[in-house]
Design a protein around this nucleic acid. Structure first.
Lengths: 205, 205
DNA sequence: GTCTATAGTCTGATAGAC
DNA sequence: GTCTATCAGACTATAGAC
């Protein structure tokens, strides 16, 4: 409505095209990695010309950076939701299940981060040592408390969190391998049952 | 010695240079992925000129292919060693420990495969559906037998194997993230203790 | 066998018409 | 805002001297 906003950053059409580009970039970057992806592929996927892409984003780097930044929050939400006041086993199993759902529903996002971290996190290295470490430290302290008070078994909280990341994201990141071995069968029902058992047994004091 | 071999494929110097190139290529491909790696980087790392590289291998693809093929065996050796006649829990924990050692001692190899699988295994897709699936099927049958006879708990053998892959390779493939969170502390002692506990509890009937 | 020079291609980014 | 045309640099691969 208002015409006098101090920073009218984006018109409706700009907003719409930016989103289309980000969506297309997610497709391409997650499939080929940063270096493997080309602006041509992204432009095609977005239904725009290459120069038009660069009218909305100043460079290939800029698209990738905005994509990663925008997803970081979504990606860490399940861990943020871990509640110190909830039931320990329920909280941890719930966290694992939400992460597994994300692997099933957002595999491109998982592979985008995997590509980035696998190559040494050249573009989000700072974010890992900063926000991510702070969040993990906070939640690890909660888990350590649960262990100390005997509400769950003695476990190293950091490796427990790593294990949840590794086990759930594996089904998105190594999808090609998992499906090759299972011969096309849907891995997720079996995965959830397995992980439920695994963590239930681990956490019993 | 003999001059009359039917296929004297490689002289000593050819052998030596080929190995130097493969070693350099492992370094570069594992760090940047196939597309991200350049022949210049590999040539530099090998201490050879770019055309000289292509005297030994017909193309960038050829270097990558030989590298992957040569490593596939090493990579699957620990699973091959799983012995149907051994003690079930000992066999499975031993397999996990060997895989964790490989993550620690051969992280470049782990990341090379991770890069390949993450992008849909475009160059070894056949190997996954063939040899790998056959090997996993064979070992999964052994594990299923152990479960049936009550020597270990009821577990889905495929997801058990996936979990060992995911948990052990995570420490090599996501090294940047693990170290960022742990603040430089060596992850492996803690990882081994955690994984020992995890699988011990899981496998108790 | 190894090198310098370079051909030929791909790709990120820009110029400029509409 | 969007397009066609195109530049400049990087890259794989080859030619050809030594």
């Amino acid at each position: 409505m208002s015409e006098a906003k101090p920073k009218p950053r984006k018109t409706r059409i700009q907003q719409r095209n930016s989103e289309t580009i980000i969506e297309a970039a997610l497709d391409v970057f997650s499939k080929h990695g940063f270096r493997g992806a080309t602006l041509d592929q992204i432009a095609n996927a977005a239904g725009l010309s290459k120069p038009n892409l660069l009218y909305y984003f100043s460079s290939k780097e800029a698209i990738h950076a905005e994509l990663l930044e925008g997803l970081m929050d979504t990606w860490l939400d399940p861990l943020r939701a871990l509640d110190a006041n909830g039931d320990p086993k329920e909280q941890l199993l719930g966290y694992m299940r939400r992460k597994l759902e994300m692997s099933r529903d957002l595999p491109r996002e998982s592979r985008l981060f995997a590509n980035e971290v696998l190559q040494g996190a050249p573009r989000i290295g700072a974010g890992l040592g900063g926000d991510l470490k702070a969040l993990v430290d906070e939640k690890a302290a909660i888990i350590a408390d649960w262990s100390r008070s005997g509400r769950i078994a003695q476990v190293d909280p950091y490796h427990l969190i790593f294990s949840i990341w590794a086990l759930t994201q594996h089904y998105a990141d190594f999808d090609a391998q998992v499906r090759a071995v299972l011969g096309g069968e849907d891995p997720f029902p079996g995965a959830e049952a397995f992980l439920d058992t695994l963590y239930t047994k681990l956490l019993i004091p």
